[in-house]
Design a protein around this nucleic acid. Structure first.
Length: 199
DNA sequence: GCGACGATGGGCT
DNA sequence: GCCCATCGTCGCA
């Protein structure tokens, strides 16, 4: 297995959202929290792109909440759902066009003691296997909304991590869009990789 | 392992 | 008002 320690540049995110969602698999998400480095390998993502995408928050256009998605690629878009959960996205596309990749699952890699404390009562297998679980584990909440992951010194960023062969990527419909009209409800913009296939 | 269900609050149609 | 890009717990196998 090969590892690197460089931060992904803005040009990585300034592309088609679906490509970025696929390419984020195997990458390492890092949050430096209270001086401690917490990290996990990205195993599951979803793409949300454009005002025509009826599954995307920006279907209603630009509002105070969705403004971050129209901002520069590489920003963190963190929002609140179900009255108690924070979900983390990374903004994509050129500035002015709304898009973001939702991070849905990670494999815990660094800062395991603090992660275990925050996810207590759960076995390691369930520490970061959901979009709100991973924000709990990493200590990400609304305070990180709009933060620039590409800025030097940022406490939230992505590293190259591991290689994923294109043939090992699975795609499927996005989760939780039961009341969204077709084709958006079924478009296969959810991407997963089995951690056994990371090199 | 799986299905059902309550919690809880911001954003918007 | 109603709708959620969800989780944890419970019951049952």
């Amino acid at each position: 297995m090969s590892e690197t320690n460089q931060k992904l540049m803005r040009s990585f995110f300034a592309r088609d959202t679906v490509e970025v969602a696929r390419d984020l698999l195997g990458k390492r998400l890092v949050h430096v929290d209270q001086g401690q480095r917490l990290a996990g390998i990205i195993l599951e993502t979803e793409a949300y792109r454009g005002e025509e995408d009826q599954g995307c928050h920006c279907r209603a256009g630009r509002t105070e909440r969705t403004a971050v998605m129209y901002g520069p690629p590489g920003l963190a878009y963190v929002y609140f759902v179900y009255g108690m959960h924070w979900l983390l996205n990374l903004v994509t596309e050129e500035e002015g066009y709304p898009g973001a990749v939702l991070l849905r699952a990670l494999s815990p890699e660094k800062g395991l003691d603090l992660i275990a404390e925050r996810r207590k009562k759960q076995p390691p297998r369930h520490w970061m296997d959901g979009p709100a679980k991973l924000t709990q584990a990493l200590g990400v909440d609304g305070g990180q909304n709009g933060l620039d992951s590409c800025q030097p010194g940022s406490d939230l960023f992505v590293e190259p991590g591991y290689q994923v062969e294109p043939g090992q990527i699975q795609s499927s419909p996005r989760i939780g869009l039961d009341n969204v009209p077709e084709p958006w409800k079924s478009i296969p913009w959810r991407f997963t990789v089995d951690p056994a296939h990371l090199t």
